[in-house]
């Protein structure tokens, strides 16, 4: 099959995650991966982002298929069930909200800046070496929080890539669930 320019977007994923090791402020770039899929779905593009452009999906595909890291097993049935997908989306949003709340508290001076990356919402990793100052504390706090989310979800994606099929993450990806919900709402109102 013919390769397109957008078949190389997995590189973006690697560059993004790498930048976070050197300058945590680069985490802000990741907002593109949040807003772009939503905007495409809102303006009627359906799940074009998942289908063609998702850098993470491509990376998982590459690791699972090309590098043969995937067991290629059928995932458990609950993974694609609505209760699990919506439940994971809800959990994800609560954690995202908590991250925004901490960002606010740091901005309001009620909390000191925490220079950590939190893996899997629980494991605190020291990360101060990727912060070089020069911005308001809340800007830095958001970077640490947002990068934590990106690293955590990539890690979950890699775990399910290894255990099941390469792009198993796509089944319960909160962004994917949201864009499908938006697509459903659109088709219902048409």
């Amino acid at each position: 099959m013919k390769k397109h320019w957008y078949d190389y977007l997995w590189i973006v994923s690697i560059v993004y995650l790498t930048l976070g090791f050197f300058n945590i402020l680069c985490a802000w770039i990741g907002l593109i991966f949040f807003f772009l899929p939503l905007l495409i779905a809102i303006f009627g593009g359906g799940k074009l982002y998942c289908n063609l452009f998702c850098d993470r999906g491509q990376l998982l595909s590459l690791l699972g298929k090309k590098l043969k890291l995937s067991a290629n097993r059928r995932p458990p049935v609950f993974l694609h069930k609505k209760w699990f997908r919506y439940g994971f989306l809800a959990f994800f949003m609560v954690m995202f909200g908590q991250m925004l709340w901490i960002t606010y508290l740091v901005g309001a001076g009620q909390r000191p800046l925490s220079q950590h990356v939190k893996l899997l919402w629980s494991i605190k990793l020291p990360w101060q070496w990727a912060y070089h100052g020069g911005v308001s504390p809340w800007v830095a706090q958001f970077s640490f929080g947002f990068y934590s989310i990106m690293l955590t979800s990539t890690l979950l994606g890699i775990i399910t890539m290894i255990l099941f099929r390469p792009r198993s993450w796509c089944v319960y990806c909160p962004m994917g669930t949201m864009t499908q919900l938006i697509s459903r709402a659109r088709s219902r109102s048409e």
Partner: peptide, 20 residues
Amino acid sequence: VACGCCTKVCPKGAIRVYKG
């Protein structure tokens, strides 16, 4: 889940994601 993985491997272009 309309991820579109199937569309990438179909040798005939016989499967597509309908409106997300």
